[in-house]
């Protein structure tokens, strides 16, 4: 179709504005992280007066950023790996078999994904506290406790996205594996899993990202020793001073791995994210 001039111009202007809107916080984050403290206390500056890496050094000292970092990493890695491992088996069953209860299972998984987190937070809080009191299992304030609560959101969408990916693996592959003498599980591990690997990694990354950014559960169910980044970053605001350059340096530091991972796997992620909602 030939594009009229007004459309081309509206596109140029519109897309430029939208890109500016999308990148504005990134600009502020990057430039502010390079500013000395004096630059962020007065009027806003678009550029640092002098480029300084102080914020990237001091940010580790103002708050226990390193500890928060490790906490976030441990909790997010375990939660995402565990949920993908469990979800992969379930997704294989849903994708390759027709059985009684299949529909019920799919609908339950999908709907719990949409429930408000606060609905699970209060009971989980009470359960954790009472398990600690009666059985001596200390889940409240612990990493395992947080990991369990993170499964409430990583597990459903991992199932959901993986069903989409496994559906896109041709069934002829299963059959070829069966001809070679593999049982269903042999076919699953030798053929289906390798073929769906890009999708599996995409789900892993996506689960990691959501766990990495989670705030609701972490704000209540962690203590000083298990606090994660998402909650801990608030600590840069003291009563007398807000170290904006350090907040931005820390935000940038914790964002880079996730953004790079996302953009590298963009193609697979986009396919998986949209498969759940669009198909």
């Amino acid at each position: 179709m030939r594009e009229p001039t007004w459309f081309v111009w509206s596109r140029r202007i519109g897309l430029t504005l939208l890109c500016a809107f999308a990148l504005l916080p990134v600009w502020v984050m990057v430039t502010t992280s390079l500013k000395p403290l004096g630059d962020v206390q007065g009027e806003f500056r678009w550029f640092p007066s002098t480029v300084s890496l102080d914020a990237f050094v001091e940010m580790w000292r103002t708050i226990p950023l390193g500890r928060y970092f490790v906490n976030s990493l441990v909790v997010s890695v375990i939660a995402s790996v565990a949920s993908v491992a469990l979800a992969l088996l379930a997704a294989y069953a849903v994708s390759r078999y027709r059985f009684t209860g299949r529909q019920l299972f799919s609908v339950t998984v999908l709907s719990t994904q949409m429930f408000p987190g606060i609905l699970f937070l209060l009971p989980l809080f009470v359960i954790f506290v009472n398990l600690g009191r009666t059985l001596g299992i200390d889940l409240y304030g612990s990493r395992p406790g947080l990991i369990i609560t993170y499964l409430t959101f990583t597990l459903p969408f991992a199932v959901w996205m993986l069903v989409g990916y496994l559906d896109s693996v041709p069934r002829e592959l299963d059959e070829a594996a069966a001809v070679d003498g593999n049982g269903p599980m042999g076919a699953f591990f030798r053929v289906v899993v390798p073929a769906a690997m890009p999708g599996i990694i995409a789900v892993l990354i996506y689960a990691f990202m959501t766990a990495w950014g989670e705030v609701l559960f972490a704000s209540v169910l962690t203590d000083e020793s298990t606090r994660t980044l998402a909650v801990g970053l608030q600590g840069y605001a003291t009563q007398n001073n807000v170290y904006w350059n350090q907040i931005m340096a820390a935000s940038l530091t914790v964002s880079v791995p996730v953004v790079v991972g996302f953009l590298l796997l963009q193609r697979y992620l986009v396919a998986g994210l949209t498969a759940g909602s669009v198909k």
Binding site: V40, Q41, A230, L252, V258
Partner: peptide
């Protein structure tokens, strides 16, 4: 790719940046 950046950034990192951008004085 640029359009995906807001979606890829961790929420707490980008929203804290917005709260800095919307500070009254600085």
């Amino acid at each position: 790719t640029v359009f995906l950046v807001p979606y890829a950034l961790p929420v707490f990192a980008s929203v804290i940046t917005w709260s800095f951008m919307l500070q009254r004085d600085n």
